[in-house]
């Protein structure tokens, strides 16, 4: 299959030739290339199983970085423990020699703060490039007793009749934390039905086994377009381009704390030589400027956080997000 990759790279090079006249991203990356690096394929580590949102994002990125840098890249899924095994691997075992790049999501922070038990911290991984973001959205059924209700109606219904409305959650994650916030602020009570991921939750919603499913736009797109599920609210700062009519949780409840999103970014283990780190950062950032890759990501239904996209100090901006999460854990007694 190697010829296919080469042919693709060639076609791509020809297509991108007019753009290259202005500023050639390949040349810029090549300028930063250290002499002795890379002498073997670079691993993009993904801590979630193949085929999920994270994996697809990483594979699309790898394809683009490969064609820009000319280096061989292998996407490797180091899975287990809902990401914990891979996160620990990146933070404690991966050699900081530039041959390991983690393409990870901000779920790293929760793992580091709540589950790593001090064995490692999320600062053991240094961000090199922002990839994309996905905000948690709630969808309801288009049939049954809660048909046509807004998010406000549903929360008041859950207050009047506590423990009747069934919400699909993934335990120990933002799926549950947002419910904590809503319940604490409104006095409503929901039934939390646990699933292993957003996909299983939507199955249960369509089958009438839960009343509300949570997940990401990319997971729900087909059902939303097919009119099988109703959009309720999004846990982001602003409304989504794809669903202009769907309010944010903050709009609906007049707060500013309902911000639960997945930030995907690339990291290298702490201690990676600075020339290699700079080269990898340039390659991944260069790939992220490619209009084709951005279009592919948009097709998946992800969005780009302007603050992180135009960041001058990515590590500091990501840490600021992580701190908001830390405050929530402290406030809710999950973290001392």
């Amino acid at each position: 299959m190697k010829w296919a990759g080469i042919a693709y790279a060639l076609v791509f090079a020809l297509l991108s030739a007019p753009v290259a006249a202005q500023s050639d991203p390949k040349a810029e990356i090549a300028k930063l290339k250290p002499k002795d690096f890379p002498s073997q394929p670079i691993e993009f580590t993904v801590v979630y199983p193949a085929g999920g949102g994270m994996d697809v994002s990483a594979r699309l990125l790898a394809k683009q970085v490969e064609s820009l840098s000319g280096d061989r890249i292998i996407v490797n899924n180091r899975t287990g423990g809902a990401g914990m095994v891979g996160h620990s691997y990146l933070a404690t075992q991966a050699k900081p020699d530039g041959y390991t790049v983690g393409v990870i999501a901000s779920l790293l922070w929760g793992d580091a703060m709540l589950r790593a038990q001090g064995r490692w911290a999320y600062t053991d991984l240094e961000p090199i490039a922002y990839v994309n973001s996905d905000a948690l959205i709630w969808v309801g059924s288009t049939e049954g007793p809660y048909k046509g209700m807004s998010i406000k109606d549903i929360v008041s219904a859950a207050k009047e009749k506590p423990n009747t409305i069934r919400v699909a959650i993934v335990p120990g994650s933002m799926w549950e934390y947002i419910l904590d916030q809503i319940e604490a602020n409104s006095g409503a009570k929901f039934l939390r039905v646990p699933f292993q991921g957003g996909g299983a939750g939507i199955t249960a919603l369509l089958g009438g086994n839960v009343d509300i499913a949570q997940g990401f736009f990319s997971e729900f797109r087909g059902y939303l377009e097919g009119g099988k599920v109703a959009p309720l609210a999004v846990a982001a700062a602003g409304r989504m381009d794809f669903l202009k009519d769907m309010p944010t949780f903050n709009e609906a409840f007049g707060g500013n704390e309902y911000l639960w999103q997945l930030v995907r970014y690339a990291v290298v283990p702490k201690g990676t030589p600075s020339d290699r780190k700079a080269y990898l950062a340039a390659a991944v950032q260069g790939a992220m400027k490619d209009p084709e890759l951005i279009a592919e990501y948009r097709k998946q239904g992800v969005f780009f956080d302007p603050k992180l996209q135009n960041s001058n100090d990515l590590a500091a901006d990501l840490n600021a997000y992580a701190d908001v999460e830390r405050q929530f854990y402290v406030k809710t007694g999950r973290l001392k």
Binding site: P49, A50, G51, G52, D55, V56, R59, L60, G199, S218, R221, G222, Y223, E225, G226, K228, E296, K299, Q300
Partner: peptide, 18 residues
């Protein structure tokens, strides 16, 4: 789930209308 991912990469959204 992986097959679904492959469809999405191809720009096809499987769903009730597929």
């Amino acid at each position: 789930a992986l097959l679904l991912g492959a469809l999405i990469i191809q720009g096809i959204q499987p769903g009730p209308l597929f």
